[in-house]
Amino acid sequence: MAQEEKIDQIGLLEEEELAAFIDHACELEHPREMVIDVLRAIQKNHGWVPDEGVELTATILGITPIEVEEVATFYDKIFRRQVGRFPIHICDSICCWSNGGEELAEQFQKTLGITFGETTKDGLFTLLPSCCLGVCGQAPAVMIHQKLYGPLQLDDVDELINRLRREASA
């Protein structure tokens, strides 16, 4: 256990989680197949994947950091830069676009006072454009922490943001 604590120096994973990953990596013939699982777990705990997370993943899976980075930087739902506590993925694909997705995106930007790629000063929200979220029947939609919201009217934005703010201060 002492050694396990050492490989996760900044506490990116829960102790049991880390132990489970290490055990699972030992069982698998190709531990590398877990790379997304580990990165997602780190992101879930830490909000995003810092360099230490890439290095920790590499250590758990017995591969090099560049091998993890090659994969981590490919996927748009793995954050290699700090994001707010609530990264808001706003769908900009065709069904949401045809149902007022652009106006919705503008409303989010206006409400939060940030543009895409930015994080609010309080560190709560980051706005990100996203491809189709798979809820085309409920357009326009957004996703926050793998939870989907849609169809959203422009009026819903304030309420959603306020709800998340309350959640954050609770």
Partner: peptide
């Protein structure tokens, strides 16, 4: 097996690479 976004994973051989944990 989970993913982390990207449409290309729907291409079957890209999906296999994704499953294997490589690009």
């Amino acid at each position: 097996h989970g993913s982390a976004g990207r449409y290309i994973l729907g291409e079957e051989t890209a999906l296999l690479n994704g499953l294997e944990g490589i690009r």
